[in-house]
Simulated assay, not measured.
Amino acid sequence: MFDVVIIGAGPAGLTAGIYTSRGGLKTGIVELAMPGGQAASTEKIENYPGFPEGVNGYELMNAFHQQALSFGAEFIFEEVQTFDLKDPVKKIQTESRVLEARSIIIAAGSKPRLLGVPGEEFFKGRGVSYCATCDGAFFKGKKVAVIGGGDAALEEGVYLTRFAEEVIIIHRREGFRASQIAVNRAKENPKIRFELNCVVEEILGSDYVEGVRVRNVLDSTKREIPAAGVFIYVGTDPNAQFIHGEIKTDERGYIYTNQYLQTNIEGVYAAGDIRDTPLRQVATAVGDGALAAAEVEKYLSGTPNS
């Protein structure tokens, strides 16, 4: 029996675990992969306070992980399959066991959104990637394409220039959703070129990626762009595959919470990227984790906010 089970070990889940375990609550943190979530695969985080030169995402998240361990949080490295939330004691079904908890914080985060074009699924691991930090070194001296126009696309595109001969950023518009500083850095990098007003219609190759077919959205012309790798950054979707009906979500699957991060189920809270929130950053996830932990402590002491 846990006082609180936290689902997900990204910035929000780890922060919540630091707070709850330090506060004396018996804390279990369930995580399918390595601690840190998407932040752990980010080469350099420049907008997290306290690091004027930036910080490596893996190193930052490893520090979060070690801090949670130091206060006694227990990590269960399994996948959550479903849960039963109707009773005061909640039940979480993983691959090999049923965990019981007096409260739950859902901090499962989000995952890269698929592009949804022919060839994407077939070439996963054979040239299609969603993580430049993980796979960039495989493309030393080669041409790669980056799909997207947000901060992740441009920042990871710049990172890929460490290895690639050329990085082609393909974006469906003329303008970018990314911050101006990210745009400027990409435009100033001589190894980056842009293919704007273009959408990818197919990823091409035989055994491995050899290029992409793009369509110009202004004149509908199509052409092929050679590339040995395709890095896709077109947004995220919530890791909500285990949520079935009990918890209220929006049409995309992001969890609705009130200002205290309570869901519609008593004793169940949500924090970080998986909830319906206007900003998804490490800093906001950390704030969510701290608030959710504080609210769990109030709930378990019988003085919850309404």
Rank of each mutant, 00 (worst) to 15 (best):
G229R: 02
V217F: 03
A101Q: 01
N197D: 10
R126C: 08
K44Y: 11
E165D: 12
I203R: 07
G116V: 08
A293M: 10
I92W: 06
E166L: 10
G57I: 00
G72D: 04
Y58L: 15
L300R: 02
G253E: 02
L204D: 08
N305H: 15
E297F: 14
G245K: 14
I169W: 04
E295Y: 07
R22L: 12
T27L: 03
F2N: 04
N216H: 14
I104G: 01
A240C: 12
R172D: 05
L196T: 11
N258P: 06
A270F: 00
N239L: 07
A73L: 11
D219Q: 09
R215H: 11
G253T: 05
F2W: 08
G205C: 03
N258E: 09
T263A: 02
K140T: 13
F77N: 13
A63Q: 15
S70G: 06
V286L: 10
T42R: 08
L196R: 09
E78W: 12
P52A: 08
F83I: 11
D250F: 04
L218Y: 11
N305V: 01
L99M: 07
S220N: 15
I168M: 04
R113T: 00
G289F: 03
Q38V: 09
I18R: 04
E155Y: 09
R185H: 02
I192E: 01
S301Y: 11
A293Q: 05
K298C: 09
V30H: 01
P112C: 06
F231K: 06
I243C: 11
N216K: 11
A240V: 12
Y48P: 06
E43W: 15
N56P: 04
E251Q: 14
P49Y: 02
I168E: 12
L160G: 02
E121S: 10
A101W: 01
V89F: 07
E251P: 06
S306E: 15
F77T: 13
T249E: 03
G37D: 03
T303K: 15
P226K: 15
E78D: 12
H65I: 06
F51A: 05
F51P: 08
A39L: 01
E188N: 11
G23S: 09
I274L: 07
E224Y: 06
G267I: 04
E246V: 13
I192W: 03
D151Q: 10
P190C: 01
I76G: 12
C198K: 15
L291N: 11
Q81F: 14
F83R: 12
E266F: 06
L69P: 03
F123K: 02
F75W: 05
E195Y: 08
A145R: 04
N56E: 09
L85T: 04
L32N: 12
Q262N: 06
D135E: 12
E166Q: 11
I147F: 05
P49H: 05
G17M: 09
L291E: 11
